[in-house]
């Protein structure tokens, strides 16, 4: 456990030594702040109509949910960039042998790397959360719903990171890792689209689609099915990554 944290801490800090992490943080924050302000403006504009409606959407529904929804889409683009170097660059720079000849198990290496990279995503989620919290100065928020959104986004980025990590284990170069991770995530994202085309949507595709589970949790319907989908997803790709690293010293 201790070693996992050592690797995770190193990985987390190393990300900030390259301009990539800073650039991503800055751009994300800028885009999302813009969107957030747009949503707040919308709310102010339609507020008089909302007052006359029964069961009207609340401030949280109009600002927080779309903000986190868009953040999910942006993570779809950004996570592959954050995870692409994890194993692949170490292998390329021949630094992987440092980890392989240290008294560590491959499980520790992979989980450490995963947590280090997930840490940055979690930090981004935290920064996004601060925006709606600023509304507390003049309004009220539905905290249960805010929490559901945070949980949904964390699970989503966790799943994205795990797939990115696996691609980084498999691929020869970071670019290939990022491209394949993006392809895999995007495919899972759009699987749901095909289900709307026919009268009898495929239950399997419906279950596999990551978007559906994300939106379920986001809407506040936190149930075991959706949570376990993400947890199984994450453990599956972490296990695949460990297996891939195990094979590292078998072949060349």
């Amino acid at each position: 456990m201790n070693m996992i944290l050592v690797i995770a801490a190193r990985e987390f800090k190393t990300q900030f030594l390259s301009p990539l992490a800073w650039t991503i943080l800055a751009i994300l924050q800028f885009i999302l702040a813009f969107l957030f302000l747009k949503q707040v403006e919308t709310f102010i504009m339609i507020q008089p109509q909302l007052a006359t409606m029964d069961n009207a959407p609340s401030l949280t529904d109009i600002t927080v949910t779309p903000l986190f929804g868009i953040a999910g889409i942006i993570f779809l683009l950004v996570t592959p960039l954050l995870t692409m170097r994890l194993i692949c660059e170490e292998r390329r720079n021949k630094t992987l042998s440092l980890l392989l000849s240290a008294p560590l198990s491959n499980t520790e290496i992979i989980i450490g790397k995963y947590l280090g990279s997930f840490g940055l995503s979690a930090l981004i989620v935290l920064l996004i959360t601060i925006m709606p919290l600023s509304l507390l100065m003049g309004g009220t928020l539905d905290f249960a719903k805010v929490f559901a959104n945070i949980l949904a986004l964390l699970l989503l980025t966790g799943a994205f990171s795990s797939i990115g990590l696996y691609m980084s284990c498999v691929a020869e170069s970071p670019t290939v890792a990022a491209t394949s991770a993006f392809g895999a995530i995007f495919l899972l994202w759009i699987l749901d689209w095909s289900t709307g085309l026919t009268d009898k949507p495929s239950e399997l595709f419906k279950y596999l689609s990551i978007l559906r589970h994300f939106q379920n949790i986001q809407s506040g319907l936190i149930n075991t099915l959706d949570i376990s989908y993400f947890l199984i997803f994450i453990s599956f790709f972490i296990m695949l990554s460990i297996r891939r690293l195990d094979k590292e010293h078998l072949q060349k």
Binding site: T14, N93, K94, T95, L96, S97
Partner: peptide
């Protein structure tokens, strides 16, 4: 172990 290419994190 010192491999033929020393494993160094150049950014540290």
């Amino acid at each position: 172990y010192v491999p033929d290419t020393p494993p160094l994190y150049k950014e540290l």
